[in-house]
Design a protein around this nucleic acid. Sequence first.
DNA 1: ATGGTTGCTTAGCAA
Length: 258
Amino acid sequence: MKLACWNVNSVRARLPRVLAWLEKEKPDVVCLQELKVEDAEFPSLEIEALGYRAVVHGQRTYNGVGILARGELRDVVRGLGDGVDDPQARLIAASVDGVRVVCVYVPNGGEVGSDKWDYKRAWLRRLRQWLDRNADPKQPLVLCGDFNVSPEARDVHDPAAWEDSVLYHPEARAALQEVTAFGLRDTLRLHHADAGLYSWWDYRMLAFPKNRGLRIDLVLATEPLAARCVAAGIHRDERKGKQPSDHAPVWAEFAPGT
DNA sequence: ATGGTTGCTTAGCAA
């Protein structure tokens, strides 16, 4: 099973690129973030025409997540469902081919010390609680999406400069580690140890041509699924060309379960 | 410390 995960920064603005990428890469499962559309406006017809089914947890203007799959999507869950009054559409989960797929768009956090920063750290705590209540680290599960946190220094082009930012602040990394401590492996790091592998580059300041990026989009897998991960990578070329998202797709391939 | 860019929505916010 080939799984890919992409923050598209508006599915309507990105539709031609998304369709071309689906035709080229033909992933079996796709997790999308920052759809920026309500469910009714999601371009289901164009995507279904390529052989995918889609489940969406949309929102007007901001956020919005979805899962595409060639196979059947079962037991769909939208939102953290933890009783917190939270209108932001940031989580959708579904089961495909025996794998529980959880797609998340973690809050960016604005500025350190802001209300958004508090919301981000709280949301990551809520995500860990959601895993504790709704998942089992001994079962095949993938948690992927835009985490808006870089795990380590090798994931950041200039770690010292980013220490105080919401994307690499020590408290953000600690909150991410609380999530992965549930029992999740970073699939890219199962296959690649090198620095300089990024998934996001700011639109500004020629960040992409200068490769001033961060790896904030992750495909995390429980142990039984990580054991089946035969390859992982980043479709860096998708950041090139006309009207790209500011994120590149990240992907992992899993051998069939026994 | 500010500014740089993109998208949605329509001047300002979010990223």
